[in-house]
C-alpha cells in the first residue's frame, strides 16, 4: 500500500487508456480541435493580433477599439509608417469576409484550402467552424445528460410505480425517429445555433436515462447507500452524493459517443439547410455549398468532409478507449 500510494481511480483509468494507441491518437486530435476552437481568432481572421500604430500598442483580436470601427486592417497595415507594425494571424481572412474577385479559387499559397462561392476562405471558415461543431456537440450532450440523469435517476432510485411510468416515457421517446423529429421542430423554429443545441439535447437523452436507471437499480442494493439513508440523508443527498458519482462512468463513456453523434446530426442539418444560419461558418454548411459545384470544386467536399469524418471518428475512438479503460473486464493484464 505504501509505495503504490493511490494513483486513484482516474489515474488507473488513464494508465489503461494510454495503452490503446488509436484512442490516444484520437485524443490528440480532439485536443487539437479544442486548440482551434479556443484560439480561432489568433489563427484565422483579418484583424492583427498585435499592432503598433502611432506609437501605441493595440490588440484588435482581443479588444474592440472604437477608433478602428469598421477599419480594414489589411489596408491600414500597408500604409503603416516606419517603426509601426502589425502581426496578423497565420490565416489572414475572416470566415465571413467576402472577396468577390476570388470566387471558387482552388487551393493555393494564398488560400490553402481554396475559397467558396462567395470568395470566403475555406480554411478560415473551417477553423471557426470547429468551435461551432464542438460547442453543439458538448452543449447538446450536456443538455441530454442532465435530462437523462434526472429522469433515469428518479426511475432507478424509487423503482416500483415511478419506475414503471418513467420507463414507459423512455420507450415512447425511443420510438420517435429522432432526426426527423429534429427536422420537424426546426421547421417551426429559427434554426439558430442555440435552438439546434436544445433540440438535439432534448431528443437524445434516452440512452443516458436508461444507463442511469440501470446503474441506480444496481447501486440501490449497495450497503453504502443504505448506510447513507441510515445516517439520515434525504433522497436528494443520497442520490447526488452517494449514487451519482458511482454511476457516472458509463454515462461519460456514452456522452463521448453522444458528442460524435451530435456533431454528425448538426452537419447533416446544415447540409440540408436546416443548420447553423449563415453567415456563421459550419462544416456541414461548407459541404452543402459543394453540392452545386461538385464537378470541379473538390476542395469544398474534401476538407469539410474529412474534418467531420476525423472528428466523429476521433470521438468514437476515444469513447471506445475510455469504455475499455473503465470496464473491469479489461482490468487484467493483457
Amino acid at each position: 500500500m505504501s509505495e503504490t500510494r493511490s494513483v486513484g481511480y482516474w489515474g488507473s483509468v488513464w494508465e489503461k487508456f494510454k495503452r490503446d494507441r488509436f484512442a490516444l491518437a484520437a485524443l490528440v486530435i480532439i485536443i487539437f480541435l479544442f486548440g482551434l476552437a479556443v484560439f480561432q481568432n489568433f489563427l484565422a481572421g483579418n484583424k492583427p493580433i498585435v499592432m503598433k500604430y502611432e506609437g501605441s500598442y493595440y490588440f484588435p483580436v482581443l479588444f474592440h477599439y472604437p477608433e478602428f470601427f469598421q477599419t480594414n486592417f489589411k489596408e491600414l497595415a500597408k500604409e503603416l509608417p516606419e517603426g509601426d507594425f502589425a502581426v496578423f494571424p497565420p490565416v489572414r481572412y475572416s470566415p465571413t469576409e467576402n472577396d468577390l474577385l476570388s470566387i471558387l479559387v482552388p487551393p493555393s499559397s494564398d488560400h490553402l484550402f481554396g475559397t467558396d462561392d462567395r470568395g470566403r476562405d475555406v480554411l478560415s471558415r473551417m477553423i471557426h467552424g470547429a468551435r461551432i461543431s464542438l460547442s453543439i456537440g458538448f452543449i447538446a450532450v450536456g443538455i441530454s445528460a442532465v435530462i437523462g440523469i434526472i429522469l433515469g435517476g428518479i426511475a432507478g432510485y424509487y423503482g416500483g410505480k415511478t419506475d414503471f411510468i418513467v420507463s414507459r416515457l423512455f420507450e415512447v421517446m425511443m420510438t420517435f425517429p429522432v432526426f426527423f423529429l429534429i427536422l420537424t421542430i426546426l421547421a417551426f423554429r429559427d434554426p439558430s445555433i442555440y435552438n439546434i443545441m436544445i433540440v438535439i439535447g432534448v431528443t437524445s437523452w434516452t440512452g443516458v436515462a436508461r444507463l442511469i436507471r440501470g446503474e441506480f437499480l444496481r447501486l440501490r442494493r449497495y450497503a453504502y447507500v443504505d448506510a447513507a439513508i441510515a445516517l439520515g440523508g434525504n433522497d436528494a443527498r443520497v442520490m447526488s452524493k452517494h449514487m451519482l458519482p458511482n454511476a457516472l462512468t458509463p454515462v461519460l463513456v456514452d456522452c463521448t459517443f453522444g458528442i460524435a453523434g451530435a456533431i454528425l446530426v448538426e452537419s447533416a442539418l446544415s447540409f440540408l439547410g436546416f443548420g447553423v444560419p449563415p453567415p456563421d461558418p459550419s462544416w456541414g454548411d461548407i459541404l452543402s455549398q459543394s453540392q452545386r459545384y461538385v464537378d470541379f470544386a473538390w476542395w469544398l467536399v474534401l476538407f469539410p468532409g474529412a474534418a467531420i469524418f476525423l472528428t466523429v471518428t476521433a470521438f468514437n475512438l476515444v469513447g471506445e478507449g475510455f469504455r475499455n479503460a473503465v470496464d473491469p473486464k479489461f482490468t487484467a493484464e493483457r
Binding site: A223, Y224, A230, N234
Partner: peptide, 25 residues
Amino acid sequence: ASRMRPVRKRMQIVFQDPYGSLNPK
C-alpha cells in the same frame, strides 16, 4: 422521513460486506 431524521442519529447499522458498505468515491 423528516420526523425520522433525529431518531436516525441514535440508531445506526454496520453491514456485512466491508467492500460494498463504503462509498468508493
